[in-house]
């Protein structure tokens, strides 16, 4: 038991003392997850609106595929991107493997289906009631779309928070594509895996505490958005 208590006391020291390496790992995780979430939202949110607003052949198939991809294990995404970025792969010449860019690419692909599927299901439920109400009040097509986008904002924000929490807590993509390089691609989750295997519980527990704190913060924010979203119904 001593090693656990020792680990906790070391963790507190690291958090309070502002240890350089500890906080740089935390910062890198936040940075990479934020960039990935941002990229996935730029691609996924418009795609979701397109899938809801446009009727075309194969639309349901795309949504079904996206729904299925939501539960793909992170190592499978890591493996796929690894194959493409490795020296022998089609994009091997770009020498991106084991860089932060590679991690961002993998993480973006990981959560793109999450963003698309959750946004589709959120705005689909809104679409009919918002546009019908706006039309009944005399809104033209453009005004109907404007109010629809405006009404979707809380629901979409809730989807993006969920996507961020998925990418922030993943380990497979970061490990396979980033290589867990110290001071470069070492994120909270890869550092925990490494430090634990080395028997360095202090840093692992400190990082675990931050991970949990962020997870709680994300869930509270999510709850707030969901409440706002439900109130309007």
């Amino acid at each position: 038991m001593d090693y656990i208590f020792g680990g906790i006391s070391e963790a507190m020291r690291l958090i309070v003392s502002g240890d350089g390496e500890f906080w740089s790992i935390v910062w890198l995780s936040v940075k990479l997850s934020s960039i990935s979430t941002l990229l996935a939202s730029f691609l996924g949110v418009p795609a979701a609106f397109f899938l809801v607003l446009k009727r075309f052949r194969g639309r349901d198939m795309i949504i079904t595929i996206s729904n299925s991809l939501m539960s793909v294990p992170t190592v499978v995404v890591g493996l796929f991107v690894y194959a493409v970025l490795s020296r022998r792969g089609p994009l091997g010449d770009l020498a991106l493997l084991f860089t932060q860019v590679a991690v961002v690419i993998g993480q973006t692909l990981l959560i793109l289906p999450v963003v698309i599927s959750l946004t589709v299901s959120t705005i689909r439920a809104l679409d009919k009631s918002v546009r019908e109400t706006a039309s009944s009040l005399g809104a033209d097509k453009k005004q109907q779309l404007m109010i629809f986008f405006s009404e979707a904002r809380f629901g979409v924000a809730a989807c993006l928070i969920t996507a961020f929490s998925r990418v922030f807590a993943e380990v497979g993509v970061s490990m396979m594509l980033g290589g867990n390089l110290r001071n470069y691609t070492r994120t909270i989750t890869t550092a925990i895996a490494l430090e634990t295997s080395k028997g360095e519980f202090g840093l692992s527990i400190a990082l675990g505490i931050v991970l949990l704190a962020v997870a709680f913060a994300i869930n509270f924010t999510f709850l707030k958005f969901t409440k706002l979203y439900r109130t309007a119904e």
């Binding site: 009631s129 005399g138 904002r153």
Partner: peptide
């Protein structure tokens, strides 16, 4: 349509203040 004030049975209130909801149909006109 704008000569008719139509209230749906399941008319949805928008995520804005009471005043802004009440003003919506006038604003879009």
């Amino acid at each position: 349509r704008r000569k008719i004030s139509f209230m749906l049975q399941d008319s949805r209130l928008f995520q804005r203040s009471v005043y802004d909801n009440a003003a919506y149909a006038l604003k879009i006109r």
